[in-house]
Amino acid sequence: MKKRALIFSLLMLSGCSREFVEKIYDVDYGTTNRFAKNLAPLPGQFTKDAAALDRLMASFSGQVHRYWGEDDNLVAGKRQYVKYTDGYQSRAHVDFVRGMIIVETVATTEPEKHLKEAITTTLLTPDDPAGVDLYSASAIEFNGKPFLYGQVLDQDKKPIEWSWRANQFADHLIATQLKKRQVRYQQAYYVEIPMVADHINKRSYKYASIVRDASRRYGIAEDLIYAIIKTESSFNPYAVSHANAYGLMQVVPNTAGADVFKLVKNKSGKPSPQYLFDPAKNIDTGTAYFYILRNRYLKQIRDPLSLHYSMISAYNGGTGGVLKTFHNNRKRAMQDLNNLQPNQVYWALTNKHPKAEARRYLQKVTKFQQEFNRGKI
């Protein structure tokens, strides 16, 4: 699984009752990876030259293993930001689910100096994913407001925007919070930085105008867009997955992305990873795909709430998965679905869908929609 995750990450570079709702709130949901079994084919250059792919993998994983070993190999994902710097000797790990940042170094000379530089780099990392290479140890160019602004407060309970405050906070952390652990045959020096309690809300606020515009453009409810983003990436614009999905709404270029380009944008091809790392373009594309689901693939569903549930399920597991829940024959499946009440459709999709991942997905998104409307997102 780690190898698959690394391959696809590296390729990035080139109307319910109260009882019913309460039941949803009580479920403990696991994480999901959409389209995990529908991996996009490799780009032609790598298909033709397997050795090139091997070299590409080795350039990153070999350096990580050199300093951190195979057991401590972290790679960026949907809900975690991981960035190596300082010749792979230092790294930052932002866990958006736990709300915790770990910055560490395995430098053997002047480790505290290396750690301070890694801390300040992490705190000042820009909000634009296009300027950060997640799969090398290349330096980060600081411009604009930091990505973590307001999500982390310094020792004076102040947000960190400028280098002087980041350096001051780094000195404080090293003086008061420095920890050590063994990494292979060497010491790792690290600090743990808790994020503020409402860090998810603070990230979500940044995209309010984008979500509002996309909602109006395609007629898709804002609460649904927010719930999808929270489910897919926890509002992490750097999100990537081994399913070859990118950005806030985890759009897969070869499937949903290509459909949007063809059916909505009237253009050929598919969005690039760089295109999908732009939050505005990502949210526009993900929302446009819901428009396609509603007005094309699932347009025969008559009840609006049944359609709503089916759209959410299809975003994760495809239209075919929704229909197979009800019957192997697509025409018969649509008839059977339309003969059910919305709560029965929900029950079927969360209990009988062919994929367990899709069953959990609908539950989780519905839960987050309710939280949004109660002011908790």
Rank of each mutant, 00 (worst) to 15 (best):
Y88Q: 00
G44V: 05
H65F: 11
L42Q: 04
A50K: 14
S90F: 01
R98G: 07
A40T: 12
L42P: 03
A51R: 09
D49L: 07
D95A: 11
D86G: 03
D71N: 07
M57D: 07
D95C: 09
K83W: 15
F46N: 06
G44Y: 09
A58Y: 11
H65V: 08
P41K: 08
A50V: 06
A58K: 14
V75M: 05
A52W: 02
R66T: 10
N73H: 14
N73I: 05
R91L: 03
D49N: 12
A92H: 10
R79D: 08
G87K: 00
Y88S: 00
D49S: 06
H93G: 06
V97K: 14
L42S: 02
A52I: 01
W68F: 04
F96N: 13
K83G: 12
K48A: 11
Y84E: 02
D86H: 02
L53P: 02
Q45E: 12
R91G: 01
Y88K: 00
V64G: 00
R66E: 13
Q45F: 04
H65S: 14
G69H: 07
E70F: 06
R91F: 04
Y67T: 00
L74I: 09
W68Y: 06
Q80R: 14
D86Q: 08
L42K: 07
G44N: 09
D71K: 10
V97G: 02
E70N: 11
L56I: 14
R55F: 11
K48D: 07
P43R: 05
A40R: 10
S59F: 09
G87W: 00
A52Q: 08
Y84G: 01
K78D: 09
Q63M: 06
H93C: 13
F46W: 13
G87P: 00
A52S: 13
Y81H: 10
L56A: 15
Y84A: 01
G44K: 13
Q89P: 01
P43F: 03
Q63F: 01
L56R: 15
G87D: 05
A92E: 15
K78R: 15
L74W: 14
V94A: 14
H65P: 04
L39N: 14
Y84C: 01
Q80I: 14
P43Q: 04
L74N: 14
D49E: 11
Q89Y: 03
D54S: 08
Q63D: 05
T85Y: 06
A40F: 05
Q45W: 08
L39I: 09
D71T: 03
A51S: 09
V94Q: 08
L42I: 02
S61T: 04
D86R: 01
F46M: 06
V82Q: 10
D71H: 05
A52R: 15
Q45T: 05
R91W: 01
P43D: 04
G77F: 01
F46V: 03
Q89R: 12
T47E: 10
A50T: 12
Q45V: 04
R79T: 12
D49C: 04
G77R: 09
V82N: 09
